[in-house]
Simulated assay, not measured.
Amino acid sequence: MHEIKEIVLEVLYAVMPITAVVFILQFSLIWLPTEVFLQFLVGLVMVTTGLILFLIGVQVGLLPVGQMIGAALPGTGKAWLVIFFGFVLGFVVTVAEPDVRVLAMQVDIVSEGAVGRHLLTYTVALGVAFFVGLAMLRIILNIPITYLLIAGYGAVFLLASFTPAQFIPISFDAGGVTTGPMTVPFILALGVGVASVLRGKSASTDGFGLVALASIGPILAVMVLGVFYG
């Protein structure tokens, strides 16, 4: 019950600033139509309720399950299974990520269907999946994350010179939206679970850095998509 109270307060503190700004603008400068302002209030209640329920779900389900899966996979003694299921889980949680769907919907609208929402969603998900699998390999082989980040962003800037200009901002936005509320908790918990078994609890920090790696994948994936479209 104490945890639920903390989550409720956390969400209220997060929502209050934007609410205050909108109220100040509404009654000083903008004066939105009453119908639009009421829609904002209804949406505010729905978003607040949804965030509370979502964060409770993360605490109750996503984090424990992700960490348990991460801890159980190394017990099979097969490195390829750890990498494979890291790939699969990276893909499915990205497809479920709300931020990715918002980006895909906006790109679909702006491009008038030339880049469909499903195509972009699955492209981003494949990019995340590949780098989550790579992150699992990093934990298994104890590769310094610095090398992978340098190589990854080096590839990003190299590929940017071949990518059509309109795809470059989309690709970097794709890297940002994968750090959303669905992907981050599960991937972090998965990495910490794997690292705690393979490296011991003292080295469980090896499980961090997955989000940094995972955000490179969609950038590269969308750039490759742009090269093909170009």
Results as ranks from 00 to 15, higher is better:
Val15Trp: 05
Gly193Leu: 01
Ile216Gln: 03
Val194Ser: 00
Ala174Met: 01
Phe208Tyr: 15
Ile216Glu: 10
Tyr122Glu: 06
Val42His: 10
Leu213Glu: 12
Val194Tyr: 05
Val65Asp: 13
Ala125Arg: 06
Pro144Gln: 12
Val88Lys: 13
Trp80Glu: 01
Ile170Thr: 02
Val88Gln: 13
Gly70Ala: 04
Ala129Trp: 09
Pro17Met: 02
Val65Ala: 05
Leu81Pro: 02
Val11His: 09
Val22Tyr: 14
Arg117Lys: 08
Gly116Pro: 09
Ile187Phe: 04
Val156Gln: 11
Val224Thr: 06
Thr178Pro: 03
Gly154Tyr: 05
Leu55Pro: 04
Gly77Ala: 08
Gly66Leu: 02
Val100Leu: 12
Phe85Glu: 00
Asp108Cys: 08
Trp80Ser: 04
Val156Arg: 11
Gly66Ser: 11
Leu29Ser: 11
Phe84Arg: 04
Met223Thr: 00
Val15Phe: 11
Gly200Trp: 07
Val197Arg: 06
Thr146Trp: 08
Gly133Asn: 12
Met182Phe: 07
Gly86Val: 01
Gly75His: 00
Phe87Arg: 09
Ala203Val: 05
Val82Ala: 01
Lys78His: 06
Ala151Asn: 09
Gln106Leu: 12
Leu9Pro: 09
Lys5Pro: 09
Leu38Tyr: 13
Ala96Cys: 14
Thr34Glu: 15
Gln106Asn: 14
Leu9Trp: 14
Ser196Asn: 03
Thr34Cys: 11
Ile24Glu: 10
Phe186Thr: 04
Ala214Leu: 06
Ser204Arg: 13
Leu38Pro: 07
Leu73Ile: 01
Pro164Thr: 11
Arg138Met: 09
Gly57Arg: 02
Leu148Gln: 05
Val100Asp: 08
Leu158Asn: 09
Val156Pro: 15
Leu41Thr: 08
Tyr13Asn: 05
Phe172Glu: 10
Gly207Asn: 09
Thr19Tyr: 01
Ala155Lys: 07
